[in-house]
Design a protein around this nucleic acid. Sequence first.
DNA 1: CATGAATGAGGATTCATTCAT
DNA 2: AATGAATGAATCCTCATTCAT
Lengths: 212, 212, 212, 212
Amino acid sequence: MGTVKTKRMPRAVREQQMLDAAVRTFGQHGYMAASMDDIAELAGVSKPLVYLYLNSKEDLFAACIRREAGALTEAVRAGVDRELPADRQLWDGLRAFFTYTAEHPDGWSVLHIQARTHGERFASEVAAMREDIVAFVTQLIVAAAREAHRDPDLGEGEVAGLAEALVGAAESLAAWANATPGVTARQAAATLMNFAWAGLANLMEGRPWSPP
Amino acid sequence: MGTVKTKRMPRAVREQQMLDAAVRTFGQHGYMAASMDDIAELAGVSKPLVYLYLNSKEDLFAACIRREAGALTEAVRAGVDRELPADRQLWDGLRAFFTYTAEHPDGWSVLHIQARTHGERFASEVAAMREDIVAFVTQLIVAAAREAHRDPDLGEGEVAGLAEALVGAAESLAAWANATPGVTARQAAATLMNFAWAGLANLMEGRPWSPP
Amino acid sequence: MGTVKTKRMPRAVREQQMLDAAVRTFGQHGYMAASMDDIAELAGVSKPLVYLYLNSKEDLFAACIRREAGALTEAVRAGVDRELPADRQLWDGLRAFFTYTAEHPDGWSVLHIQARTHGERFASEVAAMREDIVAFVTQLIVAAAREAHRDPDLGEGEVAGLAEALVGAAESLAAWANATPGVTARQAAATLMNFAWAGLANLMEGRPWSPP
Amino acid sequence: MGTVKTKRMPRAVREQQMLDAAVRTFGQHGYMAASMDDIAELAGVSKPLVYLYLNSKEDLFAACIRREAGALTEAVRAGVDRELPADRQLWDGLRAFFTYTAEHPDGWSVLHIQARTHGERFASEVAAMREDIVAFVTQLIVAAAREAHRDPDLGEGEVAGLAEALVGAAESLAAWANATPGVTARQAAATLMNFAWAGLANLMEGRPWSPP
DNA sequence: CATGAATGAGGATTCATTCAT
DNA sequence: AATGAATGAATCCTCATTCAT
């Protein structure tokens, strides 16, 4: 069952309990199917209190997204040492990412699925986070080129597409790893590095695949 | 709005109109937020007729999924010539895929997002289609290795992970291409081929990226 | 399944098929829960035909009541020889009644339960039949008194009450006999004769039970 | 109309108001024809409150049955002194029964007609009550035989049939008394005692009516 | 004689949200 | 700081009934 029902907690604590309950409910049942009743009950408070603190279902959902996006970003940031070489940074970041999504499937579902399918307001909040990550990956690609003393001769759009593909592949692998028993975060990260980094290396060495 | 209201059509025609309206509504608002009223109105018929022909919201949604999955599969199949070399097949398949998803964004949303988030019944129907595609890509990877007279020395699980990553990257790129003005299906396909095929080539030549 | 679907029947036959289906459906599901769809399907015809012949659900129900009331009345009448002594007439009538209700449970349900609970129009149609029967029983009670050369010294109201009680007991026993395996029409009739006729005899012999 | 609309009542009170309204509506229009809208309006509350407290139409109906069955049973029990002779007990019980059914026609309709025609769940709940009553009457018949120092020489099945007939007659008379102006509970009880008890006496004295 | 196509009206149920305490 | 009591507005779904052929 949900949080133990304790009376008279400070507002900040109660709010976190509510967000916990909301993330879990939104993640498991989806935004529309999640009812404020369910969330209040799981949080161990009455519905009016939820409204008093979080205002509305929309605001509550937005607060969930903000909290979860922050936590995921922070987890990845904490896993990466910006002094190390680019490939090491990517490897560390991916492991942190897969570890976090495996440990917080509801939060990940809220960010990856729910937030993107219920209106611009939410989608754009996640898009901002995603753009941060894509920008980080883009930096890494450029840095890798520099480290290799190569001019990748890639346009901005092309690099953006590659970063996008890499991030998209990571997101898909996260769902796959969560759904496939026995696949660890480390294995998912290794698969993606093999798939992606080697391909990038080829590109930078001037051996792109060219359409027929 | 929607289909022009014409009276007394044969059942088969009306059913297609209803599915058109349903795919559009489900794709744009999501399964839960789509109301049968909206769908009936968009189809230009009364609600009872929708129920008479399609039984229930669930059945209607399932019918949408089946129709869209069939159409997407067929589009990809029609774009590929199984006699050509593996890389050419992948290239053609990807172009067909990106073209189709660009032209049918609502259908793609139904398959990619909605169907996966509203119950096993729907998820499994899409999963079957996806497995077909992953299997096709897996074949191509193996075929590519054979064509290159290389033993890629990859376990089954590794190939599956790679195929999964490739398909996942394609799915993400489809969303990105749809959302980014000026990105064509051809460009999306080229980006992914560059990203993926070159990486696969490295792998087959025994130069995998290895974790530190 | 319902009546075998044969095309192009004369109107009278089709009407009987519809009434058969309607009695069965009304008897088993009740007036409100029975749908015109069900009835039409069971009758093997299209709904518009039902409306063409029987006009409306109300009219159809009324037609059922009329037919079933006539059949029940006729069955009882055919079982009784008005020349015989009163107790013999009652005995024969009861056997005919219990036999008929056992063989036509749906028709009996329509008359006994459905007709009485869905508006004056139907209730009064059954009430007329019932009054016929109560009048018949009243006659028998009076005749029995005359046969016994007794003046029962019973007011009209009292005789009416007794007849009502007898008919009511018969109706209840019909339901009980239908629901209790192993109870035949003959046994039900015997139980009621024992219960009722002997009591009536006492009354006529001037030995009523008197309240304390 | 209905209960006076007063705001903010404790739950227990509101529930009783809802049950009052529901019994009246179910009794007068039948289970199927009664709409939750009607009931809520008659109770002076909004529909969601009815659902909040009573869950569903089925549960509401079941709650009505339970309440009414309990009240009727209690009324009869309170009217009977188990220390008195059997005939006196039956007389008192019948008067209590006819009085109660006359004063609560809707409740009686719910128990006698509605509950028996809308599914096992409800039927069995009334059947239990009825079996209690039939058992009580059966006891009285046996006790009467013992008081008369007679061996009625009746099998179990025959006694059961007699009790059933008596209870059935009482049920029918209740409907008749309610529908016939000027018939009091006392008169209905007297009619039935005359009809039934004298007949039972004959049986016990070894003078049954025998089929020809 | 017979039906495929179609709908207006309503019924059960749920939900986000507020008020009075 | 917290809640029991209450509702307006949808939503899914069904049904009796009709029209055009």
